[in-house]
Amino acid sequence: MSVNYNGIALVLNCGSSSIKYQVVDTTQEEALASGLVERVTDHNEGVRAVIESLSEPGSGVDLSQLTVVGHRVVQGGAEFSAPTIIDDEVEEAIAKLSVLAPLHNPGHVAGISAARAAFPDIPHVAVFDTAFHQTLSEAAYSYAIDPHIAAEHGIRRYGFHGTSHGHVSAKCAELMDRDPKELRIITLHLGNGASADAVKGGVAIDTSMGLTPLDGLVMGSRTGAIDPAVVFHLHRAAGLDIDEIDDLFNKRSGMLGLTGHSDMRDVHTMIEEGSHEARVALDIYTRRIKGYVGQYMAQLGGLDAIVFTAGVGENDDIVRIESLTGLEELGIEIDAERNAGRKKQATLISTDTSRVQVWVIPTNEERAIALQSVASVS
């Protein structure tokens, strides 16, 4: 039976104090409307503000034609491996998963509750960042701790940015005119948050983020992978408590901690002005990416393509070329001219002789959420 992906979806990404929204007609590439409501203190008022904006003359949106409301949810735990139609039981389950994503899931739940009240006659679908990684093997998602403690507290590798990784890996196969089942792809989602995925045969087999989005690559304000004993050392030697270390690792580290800037454009400016600290920070950033490329190439048993996506991945040609320079013996060759500049559309940036194709593919998580949401209710 074929799946119907045609419909109009209101896609909501609700944070603790903001609501990003987009209206997507899945028969069109461009969104019908999009926006952001900030400084939200009450999500019911926030959703009403979204509705008011979309109801204005000239918005290009007829809310009576909505097929579905799709909700981005960061943490789906082990319970949710696919887009799920939201009922009271599902909403409650997402709320319980807040223990694993205290910065994200509470806002999602507040937004879901408000949106279900505002659109009671339209189906609502939760699309989980973690769902794409439910295909990881037990060896890939498990940590080397007591399995009973891990099971009791939900400690495992969940991975995030799954909607983006799934979208660009599928798009890469399409651009290569290859069956996804034949391909081994590394996807690099590089934004303020950053993660790497190993995708084999169309499914994820490994991912850099772990129990939380803190693990893996260096990010705008997050450490990425770090010796866990640093936590003990900072507590014992510096007298920091757990909340202070949490704040340090998540909000005051990464490129922000190394340079004072989380925006890579500012880092490049510092380098141009002769900053040694910024130069070292960029080397740390790209060295970590290169390490994951090598690791995942080994896990995949070879490699057919690498994809850069998200804000840094799509717009920073320096990061792209420095992350892969030196890997020519592995069949990865970047064409400097093709790589130059920001990429607003899918672009092949490897040389014609490169055994591994390297692509820049703009991510479109909202459209992916819309497609999955519409398909779930068709």
Rank of each mutant, 00 (worst) to 15 (best):
M176T: 07
I349H: 11
D283N: 15
G107V: 02
R320Q: 09
R157W: 08
P362R: 01
P147I: 10
A238M: 10
K200Y: 11
R342P: 07
H148T: 15
V280L: 09
G301K: 08
A115C: 09
G35I: 03
T309M: 00
P213L: 04
S373R: 00
E152L: 12
S17C: 04
T259D: 09
D247A: 14
L63Y: 12
S98G: 13
E273C: 09
V374K: 04
H233V: 13
L97V: 01
D42L: 03
S16G: 14
G331P: 10
A238I: 07
H71N: 01
A346W: 02
L300P: 00
S354W: 08
H104V: 08
A118T: 00
T135H: 08
T26I: 09
E52G: 10
D88Y: 00
G202C: 09
T135K: 04
T363E: 00
S55R: 04
A33V: 03
S18E: 08
E328K: 04
Q357E: 10
E182K: 09
S195N: 09
H189C: 03
V73S: 00
D146T: 05
I349N: 05
E52T: 06
S55F: 11
D62H: 08
M297V: 09
A151I: 14
I369W: 06
V127E: 00
H108E: 08
D179H: 12
L256G: 11
L183I: 11
H153W: 15
Q65A: 14
Y296V: 10
H268P: 04
V99K: 02
D241Q: 03
Y143S: 05
V61W: 06
G294S: 10
A196W: 12
Q299M: 11
I112G: 00
S195C: 04
G77R: 11
V218K: 10
Q357L: 09
K181M: 11
D263I: 10
E337Q: 14
S208F: 03
A194H: 06
L12V: 04
A305G: 13
G154S: 05
R178S: 07
P180G: 11
M219Y: 07
I122Q: 01
G107R: 03
E333G: 12
I284V: 11
D317Y: 09
Y5L: 10
H235T: 15
S137M: 06
D247R: 13
R222E: 01
